[in-house]
């Protein structure tokens, strides 16, 4: 599906098929093609600079971070900032909380969304259209407008400062139901008919026909749900007051205060807070890129 050539360059790019007389499909060196590549790399460097600067700062001894004129590379790189940040203990606790919360949100979201998508795509029951319409309307509701009544509800349910209090509201993702239902609609019914002939129940069909057939989109939806849950700030910030229940984004919001102006330590905690997802993303980049295509464009 992707082209072997790059016809979408800004300028007459090297690999674009040339007018009939040249006729060669092989990439050819051109000035414009090189200029485009250089521009692309410069933009990439510009985008990486803040991350590298954070890493750079975190490896400096504290006094060097506040020296003016600024130094580029640390004169004597040190892991002291990382050691102090980890020894203070909270970061590890927040990391565990974030992991538990994100895994719960992702698994539960996939579970209930897959079931609901199958229900709306393949079964009929009274009120199905109305309910689906209601869920579509739910896509428009920004969770931010619900924070106040939702917090009251959580207080009433006794879920403030609990994992379930952080997790459950995030599991309600109408857009996931919509995307998966669209995808299921596109799967031929022949497969489940065959399974049904073999005596499979609808429950079995969901897990052994529909889910395996939609693996790429489930992986993509799962990764985005995980990233979203890991990074969610506003809701965990509201529903946790006990530092030992905080997730990484919420916990880190206070470090500027608690570390004072120790920039190497602040940057070390930022690097540690950001690293897990950068690694996840580097490993799953292909799925992420393809998943946006499957879910975003058709959605």
């Amino acid at each position: 599906m992707t082209t072997t050539t790059m016809p979408t360059e800004r300028r007459p790019a090297a690999p674009a098929p040339k007018p009939a007389h040249s006729g060669s499909a092989k990439p050819r060196w051109t000035f414009a093609g090189t200029a485009t590549a250089v521009g692309a790399v410069l933009l990439a460097v510009l985008w990486l600079v803040p991350l590298l600067w954070a890493l750079d700062t975190s490896l400096k001894p504290e006094p060097e971070t506040t020296r003016a004129p600024i130094t580029w590379l640390p004169e004597a790189p040190t892991g002291d900032a990382y050691r102090s940040v980890i020894e203070q203990g909270d970061l590890i606790r927040w990391f565990v909380n974030s992991t538990v919360v994100s895994i719960l949100v992702t698994t539960l979201t996939l579970f209930v969304s897959v079931l609901a998508a199958y229900g709306f795509s393949r079964t009929t029951f009274p009120g199905r259209r109305v309910l689906f319409g209601l869920i579509i309307a739910g896509i428009l509701v920004p969770p931010q407008v619900l924070i106040v009544p939702l917090f009251q509800e959580m207080t009433g349910l006794g879920l403030v400062d609990t994992y379930w209090g952080i997790v459950l509201p995030q599991v309600v993702a109408p857009v996931m139901v919509f995307v998966l239902k669209k995808f299921f609609d596109g799967i031929s019914r022949d497969y489940e008919d065959a399974a049904r002939v073999d005596g499979a129940s609808r429950w079995r069909i969901v897990w052994s026909v529909m889910v395996p057939m939609s693996r790429p989109i489930l992986v993509a939806v799962g990764i985005f749900t995980f990233i979203g849950a890991w990074n969610n700030f506003l809701w965990p910030f509201i529903v946790t007051t006990d530092p030992s229940m905080m997730t990484i984004p919420v916990g880190l919001a206070n470090v500027q205060g608690s570390y004072g102006l120790r920039y190497a330590q602040i940057m070390a905690s930022a690097v540690l807070g950001g690293l897990p997802l950068l690694i996840v993303y580097a490993l799953f980049q292909r799925h992420v890129v393809r998943g946006v295509g499957d879910a975003g464009i058709k959605g």
């Binding site: 933009l43 460097v45 991350l51 984004p249 807070g273 950001g274 997802l277």
Partner: peptide
């Protein structure tokens, strides 16, 4: 490089 910042939490 272009997408990496998107995966970071707001606080970071």
């Amino acid at each position: 490089s272009y997408f990496a910042p998107f995966v970071l939490p707001a606080t970071v």
